[in-house]
Simulated assay, not measured.
Amino acid sequence: MTSELRDECRVTVDGVAPSLIRMLRNAADIATGAGRNWVGIEDIYVALTSDELAPMWWPREGKEPIVKGRRGGIAHSELEGETVPLSYSAFQRLTREWLPGPTPKVGPTSPVTVSYELSGPHEEEFRRMIERR
């Protein structure tokens, strides 16, 4: 870590999908564009809802949901139609439906891990926040 006068945080995640790397890089670009040297949850929300990283599917008025990730991709005509506005609780249910089931022959052989290093004047406060479960 570089300075005791500034808060620093380094995170390493082992075992992620390439799409998550794209999303994190998008969030980093959003933070940098806003003049910040850190990525926050708000940058993640903006990155998740950006056109580049559109949701896997979304309910639409009178049509089948938009489906992302199937073979052959999404045809432009499939994106037509008004999407259905969702309440926050409906959005939460929808995102839970996006979770894939087990993929035993895809990805790393061991479970995902997240490690971090902290330094700076708020190190202990940040550590308590991170470790709270």
Rank of each mutant, 00 (worst) to 15 (best):
G15S: 03
E80A: 12
I41R: 03
S19N: 11
M129W: 00
P108E: 04
A34Y: 01
S77A: 06
S19P: 11
L48S: 05
M129R: 09
I30V: 14
D51L: 07
E78A: 09
L48D: 04
R60I: 05
R133N: 04
E61Y: 00
I130H: 02
R25I: 10
L118V: 08
P104T: 02
T83R: 12
Y88D: 14
T103R: 04
A27L: 09
M23R: 06
L118M: 12
V112I: 00
G107M: 01
R70D: 01
E52M: 01
G35W: 04
E123V: 07
A90M: 15
W57A: 11
P100W: 02
G40F: 15
V13T: 08
K63T: 06
D43R: 02
S110D: 05
I21V: 06
E78C: 02
N26K: 07
R133L: 00
R96Y: 06
A27P: 00
T32H: 02
T109L: 09
K68E: 11
L118T: 14
I41L: 10
A54C: 13
L79E: 11
F91V: 10
E4M: 11
P100L: 03
P65Y: 06
T2R: 15
A47H: 06
R25V: 07
P111F: 03
I74H: 10
R22M: 09
H122V: 09
G107Q: 01
E52L: 14
S119G: 11
E124S: 13
I130D: 02
S87P: 12
R25D: 08
T49L: 04
H122K: 08
E52S: 03
R127G: 04
P59M: 07
V112D: 03
G15K: 12
K63W: 09
G101C: 00
A34C: 04
R96L: 15
K105Y: 13
P108G: 00
T2D: 15
E131R: 15
M129V: 07
E125L: 07
E52R: 13
G120D: 09
G120I: 10
V114E: 08
G40R: 02
W58V: 14
M56K: 02
L5Y: 11
R60T: 12
